[in-house]
């Protein structure tokens, strides 16, 4: 059953991506609406795949790398769809869906780590993990938006306009979308990290847990950098391309946090 939903998810996302790209070139409203509809259907299938997977492994989906990646992809899709509805802008979908698909497909290609022992449980812990992954998804989205901004800004400044530039969102809208996305990331990572401390508090009573996990230090560093971005993006010296470059740089650190710190330095944050 999990497999069926996974296949349905991939099919819906691929079809949606095709339609989003077609919409980017044709601008036909119906194509755009169909793309959004398929994205939504993909999201439902994606959720069911997650649910089935959790039932199959008798645990929440973030106790292994696969689950974490699938959840990341799903939250990225949710964040994108909310952003699309909020800003009434569809032309970015064709750039976000490949990222979602890469994470979703990669999750099924990486070796199975589902036997990793779990040490912590509970609602607070679940919220801590979900909000942290949602923050990563929001930051990923802001990175994609910033990359589009940089490409469009370059094309406009170089005065070498192609076909697509007439379809992309205006630069200022891309900036606003990126800010919204970072704001979502900042709030969720702040709440998620606080809940993480609470979880540790609870675990300290029963087990040997430490506050000084390198993951916490690095996460607080990333949080500070995004807060700086949020502030700088509104200043004279940084608004525009410079802020977008900073946003991309910040996401590189998120990836380092996710991939390097988790795996090699953290004791309690292997997959989130």
């Amino acid at each position: 059953m999990t497999h069926t939903f996974a296949v349905l998810t991939v099919l819906a996302y691929f079809a949606s991506m095709g339609l989003y790209l077609r919409f980017l070139f044709s601008g036909k409203e119906l194509t755009g609406r169909l793309a959004t509809l398929l994205m939504f259907l993909g999201l439902v299938a994606h959720y069911l795949a997650l649910l089935m997977r959790a039932r199959g492994t008798h645990t929440v989906p973030y106790h292994d790398l696969q689950g974490s990646m699938v959840l990341f992809g799903w939250l990225l899709a949710v964040t994108y769809l909310c952003l699309e509805i909020y800003h009434k802008q569809r032309t970015v979908g064709g750039f976000v869906l490949p990222v979602i698909l890469v994470f979703f497909l990669a999750a099924y290609l990486v070796p199975d780590h589902s036997n990793t022992p779990t040490t912590v449980h509970g609602v607070v812990f679940a919220l801590h993990v979900t909000l942290s992954i949602l923050a990563y998804a929001a930051f990923a989205l802001s990175c994609v938006l910033s990359l589009i901004y940089l490409a469009e800004e370059r094309v406009l400044r170089m005065r070498r306009l192609g076909e697509v530039v007439w379809r992309l969102p205006p630069l200022e809208l891309l900036e606003r979308m990126s800010h919204t996305s970072v704001l979502v990331g900042l709030v969720t990572i702040a709440v998620g990290t606080s809940l993480g401390f609470l979880t540790v508090d609870r675990q300290l009573a029963t087990e040997h847990y430490s506050y000084f996990d390198p993951k916490y230090v690095f996460t607080l560093f990333v949080l500070a950098l995004y807060a700086i971005y949020f502030r700088l993006a509104r200043t004279a010296a940084w608004r525009g391309a410079r802020a977008s470059k900073l946003c991309v740089f910040n996401f590189v650190l998120v990836v380092v946090n996710f991939a390097v710190i988790n795996i090699y330095f953290s004791q309690h944050h292997r997959y989130f």
Partner: peptide, 9 residues
């Protein structure tokens, strides 16, 4: 004007 709209909306 279309170019200006690419920047400002």
């Amino acid at each position: 004007m279309k170019l200006a709209e690419r920047i400002f909306g």
